[in-house]
Design a protein around this nucleic acid. Structure first.
Lengths: 207, 207
DNA sequence: ACCTGAACACCGTTCAAGT
DNA sequence: ACCTGAACACCGTTCAAGT
């Protein structure tokens, strides 16, 4: 947790690096959640004063932005796998599931990513993919964009809720209601609705 | 803003009421947003010490719960209009729009309601309606439930995003991108996807 | 270049003591 | 019954001053 173990009496005070700041922050978030990730707590774990962090990082929001990219990394396609499969809708299904799985690995992952996404949509490439995929599926640009926004909101909203319940359940505030399998089935069902809607009726009337 | 105007030198110190606390809190939220609604700011506006609030209200979360009900009140059907229309899907459209409109009237309305909803789903009757409506549309119970959860997440996620952008735009952090009409069109489009999906294929395969 | 010390302007909540 | 005063345990951020 700390930069140096206290067992040694004297030690070369290697300067703090930005990477250490980020990795330690990621660890706190992953294991304890967003409520525990304060700049002061982070400084304590690194054995520095809070002000020292601001040499390595602009502010807390920038830090959360970096963490958001790390959270989504497992669901971010590299430049290698451009257009992986034949069916665009199948790709969308797989992408949505991959994003959900990535978010679930980190406590409050969905909330952190939702925050970053709302402050700067477009900064998270994993969340930009669905728009391309809807376009490949044949939707006109604006509709593809709207469909992608709906899908991303659905993913972030659903997982955020799931993680909040998990947090409360394990804090003893709530008793467990749905287990993991049910949560996944519910997610897949809602996902199916959105994709089925996008597959039929390319231009639904406004009324 | 204050309970008593300073123009009078002496005044009968009428005791604070729970209603005053709630109304003043609602005003701060409506006009200034969630970031400005602190217990300390609320106490200042009421000319009392922060501790006094805890006589009238259990804690901040309870207060936000009450505010959530007030926010959704315009979209909460009274016991009069039970099953208003013939087409369940049309009802869902209208309900979803009514909820969105109600949320938009209060700054950070969607965020506050989302918070309350995640801590205690079922406590907000306006958000329980869609499940009944999907059931009326012929979906089996569990699917109606899942569809409703997807719809509610979609509404809260979309409006929350919209309001965050509005806040940043007017703070000068962002320049305006979509105007109100486009936001509404995007909302209606995503809504159409979900409802179209629910209208077709009652049992989409798990793959 | 990199960090400390100290401050600034805040939070939510509790609780003895007063009236 | 209702509120004050004061405390407790926190926040994010800035910045002169030190090394």
């Amino acid at each position: 947790m700390a930069r140096q173990h206290k067992s040694d009496e004297r030690w070369l005070p290697m300067p703090l690096t930005r990477d250490q700041v980020i990795e330690t922050a990621f660890g706190i978030l992953r294991d304890f959640g967003l409520a525990d990730l304060s700049m002061r707590r982070l400084a304590r774990d690194l054995d520095v004063q809070p002000g020292a962090l601001y040499w390595h990082v602009k502010n807390k929001q920038e830090l959360l932005g970096v963490l958001s990219v790390m959270i989504l990394a497992p669901a971010t396609p590299g430049p290698a796998d451009e257009v992986r499969a034949t069916d665009a809708f199948m790709n969308l299904r797989l992408q949505a599931r991959a994003i959900r799985q990535a978010l679930l690995k980190v406590r409050d992952g969905a909330e952190v990513v939702a925050l970053t996404h709302s402050l700067d949509p477009g900064s998270l490439s994993a969340l930009r993919q669905p728009a391309h995929e809807f376009a490949s599926a044949g939707l006109p640009e604006q509709q593809a964009d709207w469909a992608a926004r709906a899908l991303v909101h659905y993913i972030l909203g659903t997982v955020s809720d799931e993680q909040t319940r998990n947090g409360l359940t394990e804090a003893g505030v709530l008793e467990a209601s749905l287990d993991g399998a049910d949560e996944e089935a519910a997610f897949d069902f809602g996902l199916g609705l959105l994709l089925a809607g996008a597959a039929t009726s390319p231009t639904p009337g406004s009324q």
